[in-house]
Amino acid sequence: MRSDTPELFKKIFALSAVAILIVGFFLAFIEMPKGWSVNVNGRVSRLYILKNVRTATKLLDSGSFFAKGMKPLRTDVAYTPIEFKKTANLEDGAANVVTSIVVDYRGFDTLGEVTVLFLAVSGVMMLLFGKPRKEKKKKTEPSLIMYVGTRIAFSIIFLFGIYIFVHGHLTPGGGFPGGTVIASGILGLFLGKRGYNPNHAGLKSFEALSGIAFVIIGLIGLFSVNSFLANFLPTGIVGNLYSAGFVALIYIAIGMKVGAELAAMVDTMITDTEEEWS
């Protein structure tokens, strides 16, 4: 479809947009603060700046930790190092700082990410569902090795996926990778037996319930701490399994939702390309 806007206006608009971007970039570059300072007394920054806590403490005490021109923002608070399995009552309490940011400080953003995945999956299912392909592939029954092997591997993969999202606040990983691992195990089940038919109603209700659980946890935070998705549980000792408040709960909800969603998508994609069998 041709638009009625003349080409000249388009060119002028594009050129001015590019010019504004370039000028803004240079302005931001010039206006950046000179020198650099790090808030070493903030609880979160201490956790991920000082990897070796004891050495850093010694350096801080001797006054040689900071580079030239670098100074702590706060000197009124006494410095105490953080140690795993000992320090309690931190701001967030998650040993994995990335998780504490993704789920706690930016929990609303993660709710949006879950919605993005949901929208993508529902788009794929809307395109594929109920439309059999014109050329159906002739499929033969998978061998016995695949049937038995995928069934044994599925249990281990399922357990590993659950481990990933339950330990999201301690180790790398979290709800999205854990759910994807579970969905890959279910894909193995599809490859192991032709016409494998999971419980569709179960998958859908599981996904919906875990999505609702995410929002309900957020609403509990809204009513108890006066902020949506606020951490309303005690944070415990950093590094323990029962720590970081509601981060583990949120990640369990996300993992179940992502796993059920991707499994449903795999189901739609595979059953459509497969020949109807009686």
Partner: peptide
């Protein structure tokens, strides 16, 4: 143990599928 279990199975599946 996990590798011993899954590696031959996946290779078998790939070889069988490509042969077919």
């Amino acid at each position: 143990i996990f590798l011993l279990m899954t590696n031959p199975i996946s290779s078998h599946a790939v070889a069988r599928a490509s042969y077919r």
